[in-house]
């Protein structure tokens, strides 16, 4: 696949053909990626595709180099990050990822819509308690008070959430192994199961991330 970036006869850059990021590097569509190898391949391809090498070439080649090299950079950026890589693969598999970004939250706020966000069941209790504490913190701030005990308590919650956030990544790695085994030989049914589990996990993880962000903001504004 990689060979298609260059002319087989003269070695010069060719216009990009639409390929997915895995194929761009000549990798199978698997989630366990040797990031050391990925980096080496990235550097090697950069040395051949970067626009700096085509500064004196004809404008058509300059354009191809710019397109190829942006594709390379986009692909590298996506594949080197475990979460982005997983999300990308899920999208390739036809999954629409739930938009949990901060932009979406702000948008919902600005338009007055209520953003649908399902609290993961295993977090219900924690989230409930945390929201109470955050509300208390806001009230206190309004009244000009400052309760160090409360802040300490929220800080503890934050740490536990951060630990959870990390743990979810390890859990995700477990699904990667399952997925990669199923890529070549697995039944469609089994693959869908793993896929849905990963999607659920990513949503939970995003939820925890947003919580951590909100808590951090609340703590920063009250100290």
């Amino acid at each position: 696949m990689r060979a298609s970036h260059f002319c087989s006869a003269c070695g010069k850059v060719q216009p990009p053909v639409p390929v997915d990021y895995f194929s761009f590097f000549g990798f199978p569509r698997k989630l366990n990626v040797d990031t050391g190898l990925l980096e080496r391949e990235f550097y090697e391809l950069s040395r051949k595709l970067h626009p700096d090498l085509y500064a004196r070439a004809e404008s058509r080649e300059q354009e191809w180099s710019m397109e190829q090299s942006s594709l390379l950079n986009d692909a590298y950026r996506t594949l080197k990050d475990p979460i982005k890589r997983t999300e990308y693969l899920l999208r390739l598999e036809g999954v629409e990822l739930e938009e949990q970004s901060k932009a979406a939250t702000e948008k919902a706020r600005a338009t007055g819509e209520v953003k649908k966000q399902v609290v993961p069941p295993d977090l219900l209790e924690e989230v409930f308690e945390l929201n109470m504490q955050l509300e208390e913190l806001r009230m206190q701030k309004k009244a000009g008070e400052n309760d160090p005990m409360l802040i300490q308590e929220i800080g503890k919650q934050k740490m536990s959430l951060e630990a959870k956030y990390e743990a979810l990544l390890n859990e995700l790695r477990g699904y990667w192994d399952q997925w990669d085994k199923l890529v070549d030989s697995g039944a469609e049914e089994d693959r869908r199961k793993v896929r849905d589990k990963m999607l659920d996990l990513l949503n939970r993880r995003n939820y925890v991330r947003n919580l951590v962000r909100d808590v951090t903001e609340a703590l920063e504004s009250s100290t």
Binding site: P51, M66, E67, S69, S70, L71, N73, D74, Y76, R77, A103, E106, K107, A110, T111
Partner: peptide, 21 residues
């Protein structure tokens, strides 16, 4: 800019250039 005057980021800072979206 998307609905509600919100910025939807399509290329994040510190992305290696050339970069596209």
């Amino acid at each position: 800019e998307v609905a509600g005057g919100v910025t939807d980021k399509i290329i994040l800072r510190n992305s290696t250039i050339p970069a596209s979206a």
